[in-house]
Amino acid sequence: MSPTLEQLAEQYTQLAAARVAPAPAPAGAPVAGLAEAGGPVAGRAEAGRPGSPTPAAPATAAAPAAPKPPVQIVDPALKGYHLDVTVGPEQVVAAAEIADRAGFGLDTITGVDWIAQNEMEVVYDYFHPTGPVRLVVRARVPRATPELPTILQVFPGANWHERETHDFFGIKFTGHPNLKPFLLPEDADFHPLRKDYKP
């Protein structure tokens, strides 16, 4: 009933392919160009590090760098998950719908502040209640305007996780009905897990 790992990878590859096509079009705009260049150069999370030389010149490095495959089957004994998917921020809802149809449950949503690359990563973890498959979906948003759509309509459990991520990182989930401070004090206007946060 639930798809195999390969079938799932295939579905996400198609989703990711749908993104690659429109990507070059807005590359002329400076902000979009920076964000797009940061993606392939940085590759997966471990490739681009704060202090590593590649992200220093994102505009020039965009073309020659070999982009990391957006869908990877990884060894769970080394990573703790089976499938690693990178999508565009506008695609997280579609990615969640694929997970929903495949019978996944929402594990958690969180952020990572990649300040050296001027980006924020939003990570969606999924677990499968009946099959031993773990899925990770990532999307990167520019640090200045961290916005992406909510997946609340697909997984209602995302409500709290997105509120928490907004608390800690200031990432806006458009369409979320209630992004008021959740774990932080009710008048909090700071985002403590941003790397440039000073208490």
Binding site: G103, F104, G105, L106, D107, T108, F127, P129, F155, P156, G157
Partner: peptide
Amino acid sequence: PAEMCRRYGATGPVI
């Protein structure tokens, strides 16, 4: 029900 557990990510003795 199980479906609610899945959509909210409830685990352990609840699911």
